[in-house]
C-alpha cells in the first residue's frame, strides 16, 4: 500500500494541472488579503465590519479552489485520451494494470489527496492569517487555531467531494463547473436557503460553519457542520467506489 501511495503521489505531482491547483490555493489567498486590505480597513474604520476575525477567514476561502482542482485532476487525468492516434487509450488502463484491486487504488488516491490538500491548506491558511495580522494589526476576536483547523478540514473534505463527483461523472469539466461556478459565481445553495433553511446543510455551504461566524440566519454548530459535510463526502465516496468497481475501465 505504501508503494501504491508513493506512486499516486508521484503521479499527481507530476501533472502540470495539479500545480495550477497548488498555485491557485497557495498564492491567490495571501495576495487577495493584501489587495483587499485598503477596502477592508476603510470598512472597519466606518464600523461596517462586525466580525473582523472573519476577514482573515473570508480571504482564505479561495484556497478551497486549489483542493477542488486537485480532487478533480487526480481522476480526470486518468481519463484524458493519451494521444490523437489512439483516442480510446487512456492512462486508466496502465493504472488498473499496475493495481487491479480497484478499492485499494481509490483509497491510495484519496490518501494522497488528503495529504497534499492538508499540507497546502495549513501552510496557506497560516501565511494568509499572518498577512491579515500584518495589514490590520490583528483581528477581533483573535484568530483561533481551532478555526484554522476547521477551514483546512473543510477544504480536505471538499477536495474529496470533488474527487468522488469526478469518479461518478468520469469527467472533470462537469465537476469543476458544478463546484466552481456554484462557489464563485452564483451559489444555488445560497439561493435555496431563501426558500428553505435546510439548504444550509448542502455540502458546498455547510462546511463554512466550521470557521466563519457570519453566515446569515442559520446557525450550525461547527462540529455538527463538520459531521454533516463528512456524511456527504462518505456517502458520495461509497457511491463512487461502487460505480468504479462495477464499471468497465
Amino acid at each position: 500500500m505504501v508503494n501504491l501511495i508513493r506512486a499516486e503521489l508521484a503521479k499527481l505531482l507530476g501533472l502540470p494541472t495539479a500545480w495550477i491547483g497548488l498555485a491557485v490555493g497557495s498564492v491567490v489567498a495571501p495576495l487577495l488579503a493584501v489587495l483587499n486590505a485598503g477596502a477592508v480597513r476603510a470598512a472597519i474604520a466606518a464600523g461596517r465590519y462586525e466580525f473582523s476575525a472573519d476577514l482573515a477567514y473570508s480571504s482564505i476561502q479561495i484556497v478551497m479552489l486549489g483542493g477542488l482542482i486537485l480532487g478533480v485532476v487526480t481522476v480526470s487525468s486518468e481519463y484524458t485520451p493519451t494521444s490523437d492516434d489512439a483516442p480510446g487509450a487512456r492512462q486508466i488502463t496502465t493504472t488498473l494494470l499496475a493495481e487491479p484491486r480497484r478499492c485499494r487504488l481509490l483509497a491510495a488516491k484519496a490518501i494522497v489527496l488528503v495529504l497534499v490538500v492538508a499540507v497546502q491548506g495549513t501552510v496557506t491558511a497560516v501565511v494568509t492569517l499572518l498577512v491579515v495580522e500584518h495589514e490590520h494589526g490583528g483581528t477581533y476576536p483573535p484568530a483561533e487555531p481551532a478555526r484554522v483547523a476547521g477551514a483546512v478540514l473543510e477544504w480536505v473534505l471538499l477536495s474529496l467531494l470533488a474527487y468522488a463527483l469526478t469518479l461518478i461523472f468520469r469527467n472533470g469539466i462537469v465537476t469543476l463547473t458544478l463546484l466552481v461556478v456554484n462557489s464563485g459565481v452564483v451559489s444555488v445553495s445560497w439561493l435555496l436557503m431563501k426558500v428553505t433553511p435546510l439548504a444550509a446543510y448542502l455540502p458546498d455551504v455547510v462546511g463554512k460553519h466550521m470557521y466563519l461566524s457570519d453566515l446569515g440566519d442559520v446557525r450550525i454548530h461547527p462540529v455538527v457542520a463538520g459531521a454533516v459535510l463528512l456524511g456527504w463526502v462518505v456517502g458520495l465516496l461509497v457511491l463512487a467506489a461502487r460505480l468504479f468497481e462495477r464499471r468497465e475501465a
Binding site: 506512486a7 499516486e8 508521484a10 503521479k11 507530476g14 501533472l15 502540470p16 494541472t17 487525468s77 484524458t80 485520451p81 493519451t82 494521444s83 492516434d85 489512439a86 480510446g88 487509450a89 487512456r90 492512462q91 488502463t93 496502465t94 494494470l97 499496475a98
Partner: peptide, 18 residues
C-alpha cells in the same frame, strides 16, 4: 492501445510511477 501514458508526462516519469 496507445502508450498508456498521460500526454503531459515524460516517458521516464511515466515509467517511474508505474
Amino acid at each position: 492501445d496507445g502508450s498508456g501514458a498521460h500526454r503531459s508526462r515524460t516517458a521516464r516519469a511515466h515509467l517511474r510511477w508505474v
